[in-house]
């Protein structure tokens, strides 16, 4: 394959990976930004979304219908679970950073076991809602992958609009800036936190429903999205949506191109170290304001 097609493929793959990263990370960015807590169970919420998508697909005979049904069912269910988690657990911990980490590690074990018990240990494929294949002269490419890119843009745009234009978004941003002042102005901070946590989890599940047709549902799948989301969120800068998007693009494209130039495992090692070094020398992320 010539350099041109190769570059085209690398760019396509990098863009898709960036979309997947951004989708997985946007929910985490929200909870992390507004609540300043690390939700280790974020990857498990993502996994639940994928698993539910598979379960729905089993119940609904047609792939497009199943996809739409999963989009409607999985995110609210996962969001509800997160709401309950927040009000019964995280609130009692007063959102102490360390306790929250331990509690969400515990929660992620619970969710993994739940998925293993009810869903089984096998990897399960989920059909894409449509099976468009683009045939280039040199290689073929999945049309659904490009749809994921589009969906990522839509989701990010919707979240941005929600935060900027809606009253709820304003309240969330106010809480992010200063929770005590927000409380003084009569904002019910507890409900904002529960809502944010639920929204973050729902977004993780939504991301999973969108992404699962190009990967598969498996009870241990939450680990990678968690790690990658963290990287994206931190590199992008805390609570910065724009940063999250740009970080996802940089990491996605860099990963795609690096792994074509070097032995792939070596490229992964180099990329991992590079992310660490970015954090070391720009701890506030590439687009975050310096810590106050």
């Amino acid at each position: 394959m010539g350099t041109g097609p190769l570059l085209l493929l690398a760019t396509l793959e990098g863009t898709v990976m960036a979309a997947v990263l951004a989708l997985a990370a946007v929910g985490l960015s929200l909870t992390f930004g507004v609540m300043r807590v690390v939700n280790v169970a974020h990857g498990e919420f993502y996994m639940l979304g994928a698993v539910l998508a598979w379960a729905v697909a089993q119940a609904v005979p047609s792939a497009p219908l199943g996809f739409v049904a999963a989009l409607l069912i999985a995110p609210p269910l996962v969001a509800a679970l997160a709401w309950v988690t927040d009000t019964t657990l995280l609130k009692r911990l007063n959102y102490d950073p360390e306790s929250t980490i331990v509690a969400t590690i515990g929660l992620s074990y619970l969710l993994q076991q739940g998925a293993l018990s009810f869903f089984g240990p096998d990897a399960r494929p989920v059909a894409a809602p449509f099976s468009l294949r683009l045939q280039f002269p040199w290689f073929g490419y999945s049309g659904y992958k490009l749809f994921v890119v589009l969906a990522a843009l839509l989701v990010l745009g919707a979240v941005w609009l929600f935060l900027r234009r809606s009253k709820a978004g304003l309240v969330m941003r106010a809480t992010q800036v200063d929770r005590n002042t927000a409380r003084a102005f009569g904002i019910n901070v507890d409900r904002v936190y529960a809502g944010t946590f639920a929204l973050g989890a729902g977004l993780a599940a939504l991301a999973a429903v969108l992404v699962v047709p190009i990967s598969q549902a498996h009870y241990l799948m939450g680990h990678d999205p968690l790690l990658l989301s963290f990287i994206v969120v931190i590199i992008g800068g805390l609570g910065s949506l724009r940063g999250t998007l740009i970080a996802a693009l940089i990491i996605g494209l860099a990963d795609g191109i690096l792994s074509m130039l070097y032995p792939p495992t070596l490229a992964k090692i180099v990329a991992t170290l590079a992310v660490a070094l970015v954090l070391v020398f720009r701890p506030q992320g590439l687009f975050g304001a310096p810590a106050r």
Partner: peptide, 28 residues
């Protein structure tokens, strides 16, 4: 977890592609 980017490395004169992968990502 994603493999498409490795496929261009398959030389055009390959007669046989031999694959052995394990783990949940093999479906992908």
């Amino acid at each position: 977890t994603s493999f498409t980017r490795y496929f261009p490395q398959i030389p055009a004169d390959t007669d046989v592609l031999y694959h052995v992968m394990v783990g949940p990502a093999v479906l992908t």
